[in-house]
């Protein structure tokens, strides 16, 4: 238990954005503040406030990467807003701690969205080689060289612009405790590169990796949520996920239809089990697998316990389609 808590403390990074309530005097179409060391916060007011009008609005505020004493950041934000002249900080919410989740879930490694790698296709390299050879052999004929260069540029662009990077730009991972005695909520992690849109910041913990990168928070209409930008970083949205009555057990899949399932038994070998439809028992996979699970989803995970990994392309039943990010939802569970 102590080890588990220690692991949790060492792996958790500080939350990086909270909601603040500000009071703004009109006329104003919005506010924008810079918070050195943390990022920036801006709020667009639609329709703009007219002269004499005063309203309280919610503003997403970035937090400093290093945790500060209680109230220190609130004072810093308040003073910055006062300098702006027409806004006043009413309240800065406390960061979402997700205390209802077991520390073991929060301590699990976050999915790593690797650096974007674009591999030059052989076809483009071949075009380049041919163009260069012709350029060298016809270098006195400017018209030919120009035509070849233009043709090569167009071909190479056509061959490369459709390429997709190796690692996904955003991913959703449900981290679960499985098994007979597993109860309580799961951890819902949404990772995205460079930017994210957060539907409900009040119940979402925001983490940024690497943690020192500045975070720009843009707020507007509450129905549109909050837009976060941190170029070069991976943004994590963490919230509790209640599986409800849905369960995952080897005897029956009572959660969702999975397109692909992997299982690592206590002996440490991964096996690809193929698809696992809803209502079916866990399929029997091969003893040895050629199809390893994505490495960015299975970094350092504990040994001596079974690890389950599955992918579904469909939104889960209880959620509106708009709430689910494009791409796959992964489920990662220990103790199946």
């Amino acid at each position: 238990m102590i080890g588990e808590l220690f692991l949790a403390l060492t792996q958790l990074s500080s939350p990086r954005a909270v909601l603040g309530r500000v009071e703004i005097d009109g006329p104003s179409a919005g506010i924008s503040i810079e918070l050195p060391g943390a990022g920036s916060a801006s709020l667009a007011i639609e329709p703009p406030l007219v002269a004499g009008e005063r309203r309280q609005l919610e503003l997403a505020v970035p937090l400093a990467p290093d945790s500060l004493p209680d109230g220190a950041w609130s004072r810093a934000v308040g003073e910055t807003l006062v300098r702006d002249g027409r806004a006043r900080l009413v309240e800065l919410s406390k960061p979402v701690e997700l205390g209802e989740l077991p520390a073991e879930l929060l301590a699990r490694p976050r999915p790593v969205l690797g650096a974007q790698v674009a591999r030059a296709p052989w076809s483009a390299l071949f075009v380049l080689g041919a163009a260069f050879a012709i350029t060298l052999s016809r270098r006195r004929q400017i018209v030919v060289v120009s035509a070849i260069a233009l043709l090569a540029c167009a071909s190479v662009l056509a061959l490369t612009l459709g390429l997709r990077p190796d690692s996904p730009e955003q991913v959703r991972l449900l981290d679960a405790r499985l098994g007979i005695d597993a109860e309580g909520p799961w951890l819902d992690v949404r990772a995205s590169r460079d930017s994210a849109r957060v539907a409900d910041l009040a119940s979402t913990r925001i983490e940024v990796a690497p943690r020192h990168i500045s975070l720009a928070c843009e707020s507007g209409s509450p129905s549109l949520g909050v837009s976060l930008r941190a170029p070069g970083a991976t943004l994590y949205q963490l919230r509790a996920f209640d599986p409800g009555t849905r369960r995952l057990a080897r005897e029956v899949n009572a959660f969702a239809s999975f397109e692909e399932v992997w299982l690592r038994e206590a002996d440490g070998a991964w096996r690809a089990m193929g698809p696992w439809p809803l209502g079916e028992p866990l399929p029997q996979g091969p003893s040895v697998t050629q199809n390893a699970p994505p490495g960015w989803l299975v970094p350092v995970l504990p040994m001596g316990i079974s690890i389950f990994l599955a992918r579904t392309e469909r939104p889960l039943d209880s959620e509106p389609t708009s709430a689910v990010p494009a791409g796959a939802t992964w489920v990662r569970g220990l103790g199946l």
């Binding site: 030059a120 380049l128 400017i142 233009l150 190479v156 662009l157 730009e169």
Partner: peptide, 26 residues
Amino acid sequence: LRKWSTGVLGAAPVLALALGLDISAG
């Protein structure tokens, strides 16, 4: 002028490849 333009035109396809890969990489 021909040598100069050949040098510049020789760079263009390589830069086009780099441009395409940059856009593909985000």
